[in-house]
Structure formats: structure tokens, C-alpha cells
Simulated scan of single mutants.
Amino acid sequence: MANKADSKEQKQVAVSLAILEVIERDGLNGVTHSKVSRKSGVSRAWIYEYIGKEKSDLIEYAGEVFTSFFARTKKADRPKTRAELMQRLEEGTEFVFQAVQANPVIIKLHYRFRGTDTAIGKVIAKYEKYWIGNTSKSLVEILGMSGAEASAFAEMIMVLRLGFAFRVVTEVKAGSHLSESKLAMGLLFRAHFGR
């Protein structure tokens, strides 16, 4: 089932997804360089060089990649207007739904390890804090919310979209709640941002 990954970025994604799939199937103790190499189609030599030689390196790496992916940490600029904020939140929600449909293991492991004292649990906590903090700042600056209101609202958005994403990928009939989930999030955004 190994895919051929050519660029460094493709290899990084292939390796991180392979690690997550191994964790889902075999648990944290079941992660080995050999399994990850076979599943990802990336050589062990490449994995040793760019990720590390320890099992803990693999686990932490996968946690960093998939959690930063959800938090979209590469989008450093914050929106400046109400419309930009709503658009950013809508796009982020759509991004999460598409990402988990393409790789359901991401959201399943998010909920499996969230709040745990594992390497993945710690990374999840770090990026959730980052996303809530960044979104809260935008809510304070753009909507004039108090810090406490902004933080609570940002957390509500995060929890709802991750919860809906989990529901979408774990339903017996895969994707059966996707349109309802998108509608619910859209209603929430329109209620607070207008349009």
C-alpha cells in the first residue's frame, strides 16, 4: 500500500500519515521505523536523517505535522475585517472537513490522544492553545469582544468543527452528516458575523 513520494514535502506527509496509521492499528508501542517505511514508501535512511532515529522522534513528528496542519500555523497573518474573519473561519472549517475525509485517521487519533500526557497529546494541547489564542485576538480586535468572550467563542468554534468532523468520518454511512455539519457551522458564523 506504499505510495511513491518524491519531494521532501510529499515524503513528510506520507511519513506522518503512515505513523498515524501505525499508531491507530498497533498503538504507540507498535511504531517502528520499518513499519513506517513500508507503509509510507519512504526509505528508513531518509526517515532517520530527516525525522530521527528514535521511536519518540516519529511519534512527536507525526503529532506536530497533523496538529499544525489543523491549526494552519503557516497562515500567520490575521484577518483585519469582519468579512475576512468570517471567510477565514469558513475556509478553515471546510479545510478541516476535507482533511478528515481524505485521512480519517487524523481526527480519530486527535480524539484518542487529546488530553493525554503522551507526545501527541502534548502537541495537540500546544496547537489548540495556539489556534484559540490567535482566533481570540482576531475576535477582540474585529468584533470588540472581551478577552474571556473571545476565548470562549474561539473554543466553541474549534470544538464544534472538530466534533462535526469526527461525526462525519465515524458515521456508519460515511459523510452522511457532512451537509448538516456545514450548515450548522454556517449558521453559527452568520449569526455572529452577519451576511
Rank of each mutant, 00 (worst) to 15 (best):
G30F: 09
G163F: 11
S34K: 10
S181G: 14
F193G: 00
K8H: 12
G175H: 09
L17K: 14
S40D: 03
G92P: 08
R44F: 03
K129V: 09
S146K: 11
E60V: 06
H177S: 13
T67E: 12
G175I: 10
A174C: 00
G163C: 08
I23M: 14
T116V: 06
V15M: 03
A102D: 15
I47Q: 03
F95N: 06
Q12C: 00
A148E: 14
H33W: 08
Y130A: 04
S34R: 11
V31D: 01
K53S: 06
L17W: 02
Q98E: 15
Q12H: 03
G30K: 11
A102M: 10
R190Q: 14
R190M: 07
N134E: 09
K126P: 10
V36R: 00
V96M: 12
F153R: 04
A119C: 00
K126R: 14
G115E: 07
S136G: 10
K137M: 13
V140M: 15
F69T: 11
D77F: 06
E21V: 03
L187N: 12
A99G: 02
M145L: 15
V105M: 04
D57E: 10
G115R: 08
G144I: 08
K126D: 10
Q101D: 09
K55E: 12
M185P: 02
A5I: 02
T73Y: 02
E90I: 09
S43R: 01
E91S: 08
A125N: 05
S151F: 09
F193C: 01
Q98I: 10
F164D: 10
L143K: 15
E149P: 02
E141L: 12
D57R: 04
R88S: 09
S34D: 06
F189N: 11
S136A: 15
K55D: 02
H110I: 02
N3P: 02
